[in-house]
Write a protein that binds this DNA or RNA. Structure first.
Lengths: 337, 337
DNA sequence: GTGAAAGCGCTAACAC
DNA sequence: GTGTTAGCGCTTTCAC
């Protein structure tokens, strides 16, 4: 930062005033063409660029978006980030990243820190803990301060803002229906997200699909995993208690792959005897053996749409009609179905 | 941003001057205790925080680090990011992320944009294309402008700055040696990074391990993959041409898992007949079947160290002795060895 | 066609 | 103990 050139220095070297130099750099009609040429030449020589902080202070716009995500090691969130970055860059915005690590405290603190004029608005997916404990004040407070928020994936119904979601209910319904159409008779569901809004929607879709096919969900076929340590034991128990299981729909891929491994060890032929569908088109699903059929959430689209919505609102702050965009999901068929 | 409270507004409401309010908020000894209490109460009521842009302009420090990484979907880079974020936050810094997508243009442009006073310095891993085409000017130019850089993983010898690397040579040497100690006789190496500095080091380590054991590297046992499409065919060819292969060391996990799959299909028993070691302790390796033994790079450590080095330098800009920190790697033993 | 001056929000040296 | 002033780098209105 030390040896960066400023307008003042340019002006001094040229024997002009700061304002003339400023105008010349903007090709103002007020300024003599020769002066413009001289100024721009020197600016180029020194690789001059207006200081972003000064500009922000002046225009009251940072051209920066704050992004708060629960977990950077999750492929879905990384891919959303890719989409956000892509769209933001295209429209001249930068992104500041904060990680909530699924903790309420960290989420609230990150947003508090960024809402000091560091960013123009926020894109976020709610931390697990925040959603469990139903905190919402920190969002509303920040919105009151004039920072627009766009939520994606894990959203809150009690916060008035733009949202981007997938239709979790339909996605689960479609995946389960597909298994039923395949002729599967006993389909389990494994979920790690049961306490989240999206988790409940997915469970609902699964239930509805069974009901619509005159089958009824047995709650014992819904395996809820609350802790990382429980994957193996919970899923193993499922297989032990239901030897005739022939379908699994998992709301995350660790569950799906764990089921695949256990089935494998127990001698099931996949997909002949057992069909498995996971959630999220990540590397793990593609590299699985056999490769895993999944519900794909179009993560990149979600990111692009979220960024687009936020920037649109930034350009038009008065508008109050908040939208919720639903991004279509697809099933990507691979070898486990 | 619109309804954010400023010092001026506080001062007006309190009937005080701006500077008094400013000092009161800092518990200055100059100010009357009662005044301090009054000021702080009102500031709290309005949730006042000093505007970051104004502060930056004043102090000529943004408390922000620019991070440029080649690929956000790569688990290693995500994990480094986690480490950077952790350390940076702890020390009061924010991070702005840019993705180079392994392209020189995007890398240079991102850095150009951020070096307008948006950040105090950079942490980056060089884009593949940049390294292939041996661009370095953009780094040196930015350093000249006064922005310190810390490079990690993919670094350049021709740029004077702090660096954080793993000992790629030793890591490959150790992994290969382990396979040899296991009694493996014919060990192939698969690499997707051959054009990168780190790729060459890893190949070197592999070669040395073989040489030290009185075996000699056959170049035909080194499979170089340049395109995503070639994974299957190249590795398949390797197995076809060397039926007696009993060890594989891969510099990335997609190669390792692909080898695992192909071996599986060809009826090899892993690890009995064939031992496989991958690179990077990512989800794919943990979820593989059987789970993949890997060289772990301590990605999080790398991130923390990089952030720490950068912030140290920011605090002490005059110092010129650039360091290169080498982070220890480990082999994480799983089921493929 | 060029320049002086005000002001974005803040801090700090220097009055009073 | 409190206030005035200058200045960080920039844009923009208004003089000249």
């Amino acid at each position: 930062m030390s040896n960066k050139i400023t307008l003042k220095q340019l002006a001094k070297e040229l024997g002009l005033s700061v304002s003339t130099v400023s105008k010349a750099l903007k090709n103002s009609y007020e300024i003599n063409e020769k002066t413009i040429a001289k100024v721009q030449a020197l600016a180029k020589k020194y690789n001059y660029r207006p200081n972003r902080m000064a500009l922000s202070l002046k225009t009251n716009a940072t051209m920066t978006i704050g992004v708060v995500i629960p977990n950077i090691l999750n492929y879905f969130f990384s891919k959303v980030l890719l989409g956000i970055e892509e769209e933001a860059n295209k429209r001249g915005y930068q992104i500041i990243i904060c990680l909530s690590n699924n903790q309420y405290q960290k989420e609230a603190e990150s947003m508090r820190l960024l809402s000091d004029g560091s960013v123009d608005g926020f894109i976020l997916s709610i931390a697990k803990e925040t959603q469990l404990q139903q905190h919402e004040d920190h969002f509303n407070k920040i919105i009151e301060e004039g920072y627009p928020i766009v939520m994606f994936d894990r959203v809150s119904d009690n916060v008035e803002c733009d949202k981007v979601v997938i239709n979790d209910f339909d996605a689960a319904y479609d995946a389960t229906s597909f298994l039923l159409k395949q002729g599967r008779k006993k389909i389990a569901m494994i979920t790690t997200l049961n306490d989240l809004g999206i988790g409940k929607l997915r469970t609902g879709g699964y239930r509805k699909a069974l009901a619509d096919n005159k089958k009824y969900a047995h709650d014992e076929l819904i395996v809820k995993i609350h802790d990382k340590k429980d994957f193996e034991t919970s899923i193993n128990k499922l297989f032990e208690e239901h030897k005739d299981l022939d379908g699994v729909f998992a709301t995350d891929n660790v569950s799906a792959i764990t089921a695949l491994k256990i089935a494998h060890n127990k001698g099931y032929k996949v997909p002949k005897q057992l069909s498995i569908i996971g959630f999220s088109d990540d590397k793990v699903s593609r590299m699985a053996f056999p490769s895993l059929t999944v519900v794909s959430q179009s993560a990149r689209e979600i990111g692009k749409e979220a960024a687009s919505m936020l920037i649109d609102r930034l350009k038009n702050p008065s508008s109050k009609n908040y939208k919720t965009t639903v991004i279509k999901t697809d099933v990507i068929f691979r070898e486990t179905t």
